[in-house]
Design a protein around this nucleic acid. Sequence first.
DNA 1: TATGAATGAGTCTTCATTCAT
DNA 2: AATGAATGAAGACTCATTCAT
Lengths: 206, 206, 206, 206
Amino acid sequence: MSRERVKRKKARHDVKRAAIFAVAKQVFVKEGLEGASLRAIARACDYAPGALYAYYASKEEIYADILRDSLERLHRAAAKGGLARDARRSLRGVVRAFYRFYRDNPHDLDLSLYIYQGLGPRGLTRELDEELNAKLGVAIGIMTAALMRLRPRMRARECEMHQQTLLSGLMGVLVLQRTGRLSRLNGNPDRLVERHIDLTLKALAP
Amino acid sequence: MSRERVKRKKARHDVKRAAIFAVAKQVFVKEGLEGASLRAIARACDYAPGALYAYYASKEEIYADILRDSLERLHRAAAKGGLARDARRSLRGVVRAFYRFYRDNPHDLDLSLYIYQGLGPRGLTRELDEELNAKLGVAIGIMTAALMRLRPRMRARECEMHQQTLLSGLMGVLVLQRTGRLSRLNGNPDRLVERHIDLTLKALAP
Amino acid sequence: MSRERVKRKKARHDVKRAAIFAVAKQVFVKEGLEGASLRAIARACDYAPGALYAYYASKEEIYADILRDSLERLHRAAAKGGLARDARRSLRGVVRAFYRFYRDNPHDLDLSLYIYQGLGPRGLTRELDEELNAKLGVAIGIMTAALMRLRPRMRARECEMHQQTLLSGLMGVLVLQRTGRLSRLNGNPDRLVERHIDLTLKALAP
Amino acid sequence: MSRERVKRKKARHDVKRAAIFAVAKQVFVKEGLEGASLRAIARACDYAPGALYAYYASKEEIYADILRDSLERLHRAAAKGGLARDARRSLRGVVRAFYRFYRDNPHDLDLSLYIYQGLGPRGLTRELDEELNAKLGVAIGIMTAALMRLRPRMRARECEMHQQTLLSGLMGVLVLQRTGRLSRLNGNPDRLVERHIDLTLKALAP
DNA sequence: TATGAATGAGTCTTCATTCAT
DNA sequence: AATGAATGAAGACTCATTCAT
């Protein structure tokens, strides 16, 4: 077979894999992770269940792909959010980007919470787990960078604390919002996030 | 059948339902949500699977009962936590109680996050949702009370904001912890919660 | 529920389990062990596959039951075969019984060969394996007894050797017969077995 | 297409088929009969699964080829084993060779037992069976020859009996060994085979 | 000749739920 | 009130085989 043909075949494969991936993501968005079974995905693709195995070696691999994709989008969003020259604006930008990403893509939040439910990663391979955690680390690193720009001499310990305070704050807002609690309490999630940022900024540069 | 007999019958029924519930709770605590299948619960009760349907219309109803119970325990814990005379200590006590409850009963956290994902097969959830939210409101009210004691003249809006800031902070810590993120970040959940409290206290009474 | 009713229920259960067992044995005889899948058995029983799990906890348990039954019949046959007063006749009787059992129930031969195919017991639990091997040991013990009656002072080592020589001889005949080789070679299995017995008897009491 | 070209094509085809066969044999030796799926073989050949169908009409045909090959190797081994001048040594050599071949290639034993259980999906087996039995006949012929050398005037009937006695003896040892029974009985397969040979030799030349 | 996607039937097992008893 | 048998659908995954390319 000519190089050309091999390439085309590969391309066709990739296109189809991407299509499956897209459908899988939709299924997962519509049905939640538990509903996004191999069968369900296959059905949505008009495939027999076995057919998916030409593209993914296991269900977990599909999940991993979805999560990978999610983390990459998060990363991009955070990076873009932290571009501002001014350090304060940069930090605010990062945190907002983080927050908005999950606010606007609530299923990504579900995903990132669910996958680790139970005691640890459920079906994911050790390596995969590492890879995904690394990806998340990179995204969070952007927040660290913004913090350090704000106070270049800050000790690592302190920086970690601010970062975790912010992260937990915004995560809490997201979760309360996602589970419907915040509306019950008459709260405004956007404002709450700003509030968390303000508190940290005040603590950092009084 | 005489009224009396009907009553007794009802009483007997309730006792048994309570017994089933107690066992179900244990099973759920030991095995987590996924492991607490109807069959598992029935087995633990020394009942045949079908028998449970005399007391609960569906598996979801059992879950609902467990969640109800969870919120009640949370409520009690929060109330107890807020008993201190001193307003600051009282606030700190409430928040800590909230936090510790979920920290020490992580399955309750799972439960409270889970129930809102995937609505459950029946229409059940609408009314249930109302009831459960009301229960949660009561628990949170305790936090409100502590806040108001600290600054009696505070406007409702402001109070809500502080309350939500605290709540989101501690929820975020719990979620990060439960999903294993916090350990990755080298964080200490207890200290983080204290930090959130400190920030709010400082904002309230500088 | 009254004792009586419990008993009857148990009885009904046992009857059905026995029925399933009988069907499973037939399926296995007709289709071989590989063909005797849970589904196939269920189909033959006019059951949904899941229904069998009310009677057997796993496919392996069914297999085990079939094998157990086979070994028990073998044991009974061997015991009956060794009843003769005269030691020589007794030995001959045992060996013949052994041989005839498998000759007349060739599927039991398949079973006993298959189960241990591959490196070891395939899906059987350790305990089960032990149990079944013990059963076989008992059956073989009858042969040992007959040998010892023939030469009461024989050393254990020697006895073992005679026993194994006989056993391997008759097993070989069975296998050659079962795989169609013996007919090709114009051989008579019955006579061959007698020959093996004769050889051993001559060696024992010249 | 010219005759020449047709021939070359055929040759090419045969070469490739042989290559596939070689790989298949390796796979089968490494993984056993169950593990040697079409896909596994294709994978090992660096072929796509479908490609094999250009060379073999079905999986069963591959198995048949492997069995054919197995019998040929057995034949060669037996022939080589019977080369000794001295008739007794020659007989002993043949039997040992037979035994050792299967002892050292236990998968060949599995194969030769398996093929006759479950006829294979196609009608293939009828003719195949003929062919394979012929092959086996040749291998066994070597044993006959050695026997006849030992007692040139022996009647055919008697010779057959000795041959079958030996054959069944060694087959029985192999089967008992392969299924783990012999170790349970504390037996030594090599010694047992020698014993069978001894018994026959003694019967032949007292 | 070879590919590799796709099928369809198969593997065992678990589950919530129903229903005759 | 309680049983437990039974269903039917679902879970992930594998396989031999076919067929358009």
